[in-house]
Amino acid sequence: MENVISYRLQIIAITIALTFMLFIFRLIAKGKLREEYSFIWIICTALLLLFSVWRNGLDVIAGILGIYYAPSIIFLAAIFAIVIFLVHLSVVSSRQHKQIKDLTQEMSLLKEKLESEKEKK
């Protein structure tokens, strides 16, 4: 009985992981997600898939690292990954901020140039 439940859970986990992967691939294919960002998501789904297939994986890794309560690895790893990704996004947004500023300035200077050329004629 116990086995049936845990197999059911495993199937659900694998299905979710595969759906997520499909979702990411669809986004890339449609051009809505740039490859540079998709990289991290593909790794995430691969990990998700790995641990839903390899059921004892978490316990094995916890054993190696000497972590008493195995599921806490998930939280540790997830929070760590989220923080790093957020910093990455801040860097991206700062870079875009500068790019937008530069573009706006160049465009306004060109507009002015165009107007003054028109007046000369």
Binding site: I100, K101, T104, Q105, M107, S108, L109, E112, S116
Partner: peptide, 25 residues
């Protein structure tokens, strides 16, 4: 009046810098 028209609000620093770039060029 001669003016430079920013299409996106850049705030004081970005606006002034547009003027500096214009003057420099």
């Amino acid at each position: 009046v001669k003016f430079i028209d920013l299409s996106v609000n850049l705030g004081i620093g970005g606006a002034v810098q547009s003027g500096f770039k214009y003057a420099y060029r």
